[in-house]
């Protein structure tokens, strides 16, 4: 019984480590330079990583973690603060509250749900950037939803490997 708290703490520690590493890789992938044909379809890596951890560790990774990662993204993009943080917090919140049902879905149904969540994320952040920074939504703005949906199964498998290796839950 006495080993319970320490094992709990180490599991939180490895979760913090795994989330940080995957968020770091996602940030690098977000700013990597791309050929023109891939540019608009490049997935929203950060939203995928936040959605994954909010799905698999819903009791630990919630709106706060989404907000912090979103704020880092805003620093990297030199955007106005608050918009992406709120967007990712919303993604984490929606995934948290539907995580039980989402985990029971097949991979196809999961891909569609992720597409819907990322569409909500892009709609919210696009509208808010319009309010605070005069951003205008163009048709190309939506293309990355398709990229994100297509990459979800592969990202899911890789992140599952990471989660197993770190023995989280």
């Amino acid at each position: 019984m006495s080993s319970m708290p320490s094992s709990g703490r180490s599991s939180v520690g490895s979760l913090v480590f795994a989330v940080s590493v995957s968020a770091f890789i996602a940030l690098v992938l977000t700013v990597v330079q791309l050929p023109n044909w891939l540019f608009y379809f490049w997935p929203d890596w950060i939203a995928i990583v936040v959605a994954y951890w909010a799905l698999m560790a819903p009791r630990r990774v919630g709106p706060f973690v989404g907000f912090i990662i979103g704020t880092l993204l805003e620093v990297l993009f030199v955007r106005k603060f608050g918009v992406l943080g709120l967007g990712l917090a919303t993604v984490a919140f929606i995934v948290n509250s539907t995580s039980q049902q989402l985990r029971a879905l097949s991979i196809w149904q999961q891909m569609i749900s992720i597409g819907v969540f990322i569409a909500i994320f892009k709609l919210l952040t696009g509208w808010l950037s319009g309010l605070v920074a005069g951003f205008t939504i163009t048709p190309e703005y939506w293309y990355s939803i398709f990229g994100s949906v297509l990459i979800w199964p592969f990202a899911y498998i890789l992140l599952e490997e990471l989660r197993r290796a770190m023995r989280i839950r």
Binding site: R59, G62, F64, G82, L86, A89, N96, S97
Partner: peptide, 27 residues
């Protein structure tokens, strides 16, 4: 570890919402 504490749903989201809106206005 504080952001990773146990999730309490709405209250956490409401707090983040308020912080974000304040940051948007200030920034």
């Amino acid at each position: 570890a504080s952001p990773f504490r146990k999730n309490s749903g709405w209250s956490q989201f409401a707090l983040v919402f308020v912080i974000s809106v304040v940051m948007m206005i200030v920034d």
